[in-house]
Amino acid sequence: MKPLPADPKDTPGRVEPPGPGGPIDRSRAGVVLIVDDVPDNLAVLHDALDEAGYTVLVATDGASALRRAAETDPDIVLLDAVMPGIDGFEVARRLKAGPETAHIPIVFMTGLTDTEHVLAAFDAGGVDYVTKPIRPPEVLARMAAHMQAARQARQARNALDAYGHATIALRVGAGRAQLVWQTPLARQWLPAYFDTVPDEVPAALLDWLRAAEQGREVRPLTLARGARQLVCTLQGRTVDEDWLVVLREVSDAATVEATMLAFRLTLRESEVLYWVAKGKTNRDIGDILGSSPATVKKHLERVYEKLGVETRTAAAALAMQKVRALNPG
């Protein structure tokens, strides 16, 4: 048996160097993170997985396991249940609580075969478990099945992004909501439109979902940023009773550009005119564009002057007439 290197860099292409910038060979059978505080267990699994064509990452405690999973996005985690400090059950719960790592299948490795410990492994988010002493052929067989299912799910989610439809799954509890998973495009759009930090469930989205939880009919939720809008549509519930929401971005940038060129407006003046035509008040427009109502009023006064009109209604009508003339289809 080959000794497990003290420094992961001693095995180029097999064990990823520590730190977020280390290269990972993803051209092999898959990337596996093994988490165990016993060097002999790590060595046995490392050799077997390496021979089977996997890229192997290792962690010897719960904290480093969480860090490495977040940095490297492994295809699967083989997780020791009993470790000092943060044990395997808590590591699994934290991985499943994070939208960026929730999709990673977790196979527990444990010498605890009592029913309560097996149930604890599944309750923490594990998809399977193997008992110690570890038998590598059994581990490889179980891994292959779970990795295939996880890859198919990930490909389906990424396909939605490719067609401009981002997707999120949310779990709504009594006191809070959790993002169970989200596609990469959703992770980009949510903070941009809701002014929240990544992975946080926006309050407006939560209120919208709570209405659905109460059995009320909910219309699509729409948010605007300039001439762009994010439309959130409720698609129902998953088999896990999580809410599935599809996000779609709609842009009227072409309309804004058309009125800007036709009336020689600035971009901000054209945006203000666009939202006036949509029936928004100065306060609404200020909220959308990140300006004060007084600033919107000044832009609108310049728009009136350039269009040769005196009222909001006349400005909106002229704008819509010009856009229809420029885009007769």
Rank of each mutant, 00 (worst) to 15 (best):
A258I: 14
L4H: 02
V256K: 06
L206V: 12
R176M: 12
L66C: 07
P74V: 07
R225D: 06
W208Y: 14
L79E: 06
P198T: 11
P198H: 03
T113V: 15
A81N: 06
G226D: 02
T11I: 10
Q178N: 07
L267A: 14
A254L: 11
D252T: 14
Q214S: 15
Y54V: 03
T313G: 15
V107E: 02
T55S: 14
K2Y: 09
I168R: 00
R228I: 00
P220E: 04
G125D: 01
E310R: 14
E51I: 08
Q188C: 11
R302C: 08
T60N: 12
Y274E: 08
I106M: 01
S27P: 00
G98W: 03
R187W: 00
H103F: 12
D61V: 10
A149K: 07
L307S: 03
R237A: 10
A144E: 09
Q155W: 14
E217V: 10
R210S: 06
Y163M: 13
Q321L: 08
T313Q: 14
V201G: 00
T196F: 03
L326P: 05
R142V: 12
V201K: 04
I134M: 02
P136N: 10
E213K: 13
R210T: 12
P99M: 06
D199W: 08
A294W: 07
V139E: 00
D25K: 09
L119K: 09
R210W: 00
D36M: 04
G286R: 03
T11E: 10
R268V: 15
L273M: 05
P5C: 10
A177D: 04
I106L: 10
E200G: 04
V303M: 01
A48H: 06
A211K: 15
K297P: 01
L223Q: 14
A325S: 14
V56W: 01
W189F: 05
P3G: 01
P136D: 03
V31G: 05
G329C: 04
A316F: 03
R237W: 14
P12N: 05
T311N: 06
A29Q: 12
T131A: 14
V172F: 03
T313P: 01
E100L: 13
K132N: 04
Q321M: 06
P8C: 10
V296P: 04
R283K: 12
E100V: 10
L45Y: 00
A177V: 07
A314L: 13
I134V: 15
P202L: 11
Y163H: 10
H117V: 06
D287M: 12
M143T: 08
A258F: 01
N158V: 12
E271D: 13
Y163F: 13
L318K: 15
G85C: 09
M83S: 03
G19Y: 07
I134D: 01
A211Q: 15
R228K: 12
S64M: 12
T295N: 08
A319K: 03
T295S: 15
K96E: 01
I24A: 12
A319P: 05
E116Y: 11
V309S: 03
P18C: 08
P3S: 05
Y163E: 14
R264V: 11
M260Y: 00
L300D: 00
Y129V: 03
V38H: 08
